[in-house]
Nucleic acid binder design. Structure first.
Lengths: 329, 329
DNA sequence: TTATTGTGTGTAACGGGTTACATATTGTAT
DNA sequence: ATACAATATGTAACCCGTTACACACAATAA
């Protein structure tokens, strides 16, 4: 591999001049520029990013730390971040944390040693102090670590309320909720949205809220139990689509017809919901936009471009498919 | 950030000694080792990987280039590679190529400038020459670029034959095939497996093979047309699970009962197939194992450990679910 | 004419580890 | 007692771009 010194020799100039040509910095005479450009071409020279990073103390890399890329919510998010990274010539590093703080910490410090420029994190465990002492730009995604840290999320509370309202408008008489884990703030917000809509109904009781852990099988089990104990439930607002699929499976196994006997509405709008039978009605969030906005925010942050909103919250919109029986009260 | 020189000063030794302690190289007196270790702890020193990379000409990073992480086949694969990378302390870089050769090339050269140690590529366009002149270790995944290049894949041809055999054994009288794009070699192999099983049957005709582009909607359209033109088809071997879901949707829209009137078998064994109704019967491949084997192969390659098999092919196994009507001829 | 600004280019230090080589000391074999 | 290996540590070059600083020359201003 040719180095900048080889190019300098070939072009009969100094390395400084070659560097100036490479970076379009400072003064370079047009003839010299041409000579250097030719030498670069002849030698097939590509600058060494590692040497550049060492001097600049930055690497043109960003990291995305998320629980598990295997969870169907995340691929679209990851894709969005990668697209922005690619456009802006950043390298995209993907990290699966399995929601373990220890793994998150390992990624954070290991990548800091590589001069990574910033992180987008989907985490429920990371604290403001940890991020602060890391001293690397971080944008929180989908979950808010602290109001003082840039973040991108969606209107979970309002969306949950709308979802419940939608069930009510379509004639549901008793609506249950399968929730995500309480320590995940968006799960908590969605549950609150549900509760604030139903708490004062005469049919409401505490047993209508059960934890589905944001996963398919636990949600299926939880829904089975719920539906056996409360056969009069005719609507379920499920905390995310993955769990909603589990609920669908539970209803199927119990011989409960969806949507005739039971209406189900999920949250997220992942592609998986389109492939079930019946197809899942859900409160969709603009997943791709969320991801790309986070990436933009991070890169602006890194490059010192001030952003108008550092806590960005997207709206959500209902996607009407086949798991809610249409018809008013 | 403390540097190795700060540590050396603090411990009262030279940088060479600190380096020896860090890397457990050469001779270091036990007392000195302790002094240095203490200085490292006191200063909260972390070695700078960029400086290390510059000297060593390697970065402890590997890249995975795949068409699109949003395709549900890939997240599990990516997860497997990332797990191995993480265990072996490599950083995992993810690249979406959209099957465009140009994007693949960009990733390849951009990451080479960062001294990336190797690539795992899922590509149908990359040539042996390109990889050879890149001069960086590459393992081909799921698709074989050249017999001279390390690769990991599955028994596509045999699996396809078994899948067709399974349909025949379960009483199908006329079996069609929805294929992937011919330029993807595993799609081609699966089609050949199908053809070699049915070519000599009296019911066979060319119109029974249609292209579904390895995608859901194209497969749905293709299947709709196929089923309209050949209403006597009672079994379909679909080239992958994503397309099989499309076929399932097509049958549903046409009012064809699965599996009573039509048996469907897919290929891959992705999680998506478990969530459909009826759940998809498929020829499952060990996706996670394929990914982790590729990563192991690559890392051994990078670290100069000779591997027994450099072209590894995994077996496949049928996953019996609900889209094939059971019963002999 | 002299001072000043703009243009063009080179030298060398710098970023932060790694390691070849030199040197010194202790231990062991003869 | 002498020779040689093993142990222990330091100096400085090296990896390869970037840029501060110095210097030279031309053009314009005073």
């Amino acid at each position: 591999m040719a180095t900048i010194r080889d190019v300098a020799k070939q072009a009969g100039v100094s390395v400084a001049t070659v560097s100036r040509v490479l970076n379009s910095n400072g003064y370079v005479n047009e003839d010299t520029r041409v000579k250097v450009t030719e030498a670069i071409k002849e030698l097939n020279y590509l600058p060494n990013d590692v040497a550049r990073s060492l001097f600049k103390r930055r690497s043109k890399m960003i990291g995305l730390i998320l629980p598990d890329i295997t969870n169907p919510f995340f691929p679209e998010l990851a894709r969005a971040v990668e697209d922005v990274a690619n456009e802006t010539e950043y390298t995209f590093v993907l990290c699966n944390s399995d929601n373990q703080m220890e793994k998150e910490q390992q990624y954070l410090t290991a990548l800091k040693q590589k001069y990574i420029d910033g992180f987008i994190v989907v985490s429920s465990t990371l604290t403001t102090e940890q991020v602060h002492e890391l001293n690397v730009p971080v944008v929180a995604l989908d979950r808010i670590i602290s109001p003082h840290m840039p973040s991108v999320s969606v209107q979970n509370y309002e969306g949950a309320q709308e979802a419940v309202q939608y069930l009510i408008e379509n004639g549901c008489q008793k609506i249950a909720h399968i929730s995500g884990p309480d320590y995940v703030d968006n799960a908590h917000a969605r549950k609150q949205g549900y509760l604030d809509m139903v708490r004062d109904k005469d049919w409401y009781e505490d047993g209508l809220v059960v934890d589905g852990k944001y996963e398919l099988d636990p949600a299926k089990k939880a829904a089975t139990q719920l539906l056996e104990q409360h056969p009069d439930v005719d609507g379920i607002f499920v905390g995310n689509d993955l769990m909603a699929v589990g609920v669908l499976k539970a209803a199927e196994a119990l011989g409960i017809k969806v949507p005739e006997d039971l209406s189900i509405i999920g949250f997220d709008g992942i592609a998986l919901g389109e492939t079930t039978t019946p197809a899942l009605t859900t409160m969709g969030q603009p997943i791709y936009d969320v991801g790309s906005k986070a990436a933009e925010l991070l890169i602006n942050y890194i490059e010192g471009i001030p952003s108008v909103h550092s806590n960005h919250s997207f709206g959500v919109q209902i996607i009407e498919r086949e798991t809610v029986k249409k018809g008013g009260v």
